[in-house]
């Protein structure tokens, strides 16, 4: 089976550009960039990681394509906040997660009185939160919308998100200005 690099290399050979060939050779010799899922947890507490994992799986589950957990979204976000965020952004993000967890807890607790299945109720709580966040109470749910946006961003720019759920062409080679959408297909990841 051809690796992604071999496919790319084949493309470059057919396209010309001597500089590209040398650049490719140098980069091919270097070890593959570490996948984000390999990153070790470093920012989230156990509880926060559980919240992010629950949200990622609830928002983008595995279907006929990989989901956010398959794409390593929680680990990516953990690494992102550990190494990119300022102290203020870190604190804001923790507060957002706490607010979201609080909302989910409140919704779950109320509904759990009647049903024993907490996991199912938790999913229903998320559905209620999502509906509220994009409805009349939108301004009260900025923390959720912010985290949902980030989960989507990390997922759709991950390899499975970009290449299996959506489509991504590393070297398009030519420009098609407008064609019937059925001929192009799904949304471009980039």
């Amino acid at each position: 089976m051809e690796t992604r690099r071999q496919i790319l290399q084949g493309l470059i050979f057919s396209l010309g550009g001597a500089a590209a060939l040398t650049a490719f050779a140098a980069k091919a010799a270097a070890p593959e960039a570490k996948t984000t899922s390999a990153a070790k947890p470093g920012f989230y507490t156990k509880g926060e990681l559980a919240t992010v994992t629950f949200l990622a799986d609830g928002i983008i589950p595995r279907t006929d394509t990989p989901g956010a957990l398959d794409a390593g979204v929680p680990a990516y976000m953990d690494h992102l906040y550990a190494t990119w965020a300022s102290e203020k952004t870190k604190a804001d993000h923790r507060a957002h997660l706490a607010a979201i967890a609080g909302h989910l807890d409140r919704l779950t607790d109320v509904q759990s009185i009647e049903a024993g299945n907490r996991a199912k109720q938790r999913v229903k709580a998320l559905e209620a939160l999502d509906a509220a966040a994009f409805g009349a109470e939108a301004s009260a749910h900025w923390p959720y919308r912010s985290v949902k946006s980030l989960i989507a961003t990390v997922y759709y720019l991950s390899e499975p998100g970009a290449t299996q759920e959506l489509q991504y062409e590393p070297v398009p080679g030519h420009w098609i200005a407008s064609a019937p959408i059925a001929e192009i297909g799904r949304t471009w990841a980039l």
């Binding site: 928002i59 961003t153 959506l166």
Partner: peptide, 21 residues
């Protein structure tokens, strides 16, 4: 416009919605 997390919906429906630009 491309994919976005700034839209309502969860799960399969959310993924489907983002498959159309």
């Amino acid at each position: 416009g491309g994919w976005t997390g700034n839209r309502p919906g969860l799960g399969q429906a959310f993924k489907e919605a983002n498959r159309t630009p």
